[in-house]
């Protein structure tokens, strides 16, 4: 069985307002970013599943902007399902984002015409 184009499918889901990632029913592992084949195990029965949207900040840096532009947080978020992804943590001052902070996914407008996933503190949701 051949996967539908993973990158195109991921952004299609986002455009429809759904944050979907991949999971292999045979091994139970969750996969992000979307691939043709699961890393390490090589499982190729990947399906699209909606994750909880909850996660934890694994690492964070604050990109300093020239004022008056605001500083921006660039974080790696570990989803509760396991995979990590780069994102922004919004709804909070960039320099208040801490490693270990619980966050929840939200879909917003990204660069170009694509929608992207950002996070905000779970408490604020």
């Amino acid at each position: 069985m051949t996967q539908a184009p993973p990158t195109a499918t991921y952004f299609q889901h986002l455009a429809e307002g759904r944050f979907m990632i991949q999971r292999s029913p045979s091994t139970g592992e969750w996969v992000f970013y979307p691939r043709m084949v699961a890393p390490v195990s090589g499982a190729n029965d990947l399906e699209w599943v909606e994750p909880s949207g909850l996660g934890t900040v694994y690492a964070v840096t604050v990109k300093r902007a020239k004022p008056p532009a605001p500083n921006v947080s660039i974080a790696i978020v570990e989803l509760d399902e396991g995979p990590r992804m780069m994102s922004h943590v919004q709804g909070i001052e960039a320099d208040q984002v801490r490693i270990g902070m619980r966050v929840r996914a939200r879909i917003v407008d990204g660069l170009d015409d694509n929608k992207i996933v950002v996070f905000e503190p779970e408490a604020a949701a």
Binding site: T7, F32, Y33, Y58, A59, V60, T61, K63, V72, I74, I76, M85, M86, S87, H88, I99, G100, G110, L111, N114, I116
Partner: peptide, 25 residues
């Protein structure tokens, strides 16, 4: 960098900064 570019990290600095932040943590 399909899944990183939307967040506009200043690469390579931001990537190394993330590693440094973890090391400090």
């Amino acid at each position: 960098m399909t899944y990183e570019a939307p967040y506009k990290p200043i690469n390579p600095v931001s990537s190394y900064a993330l590693a440094a932040a973890r090391h400090m943590h």
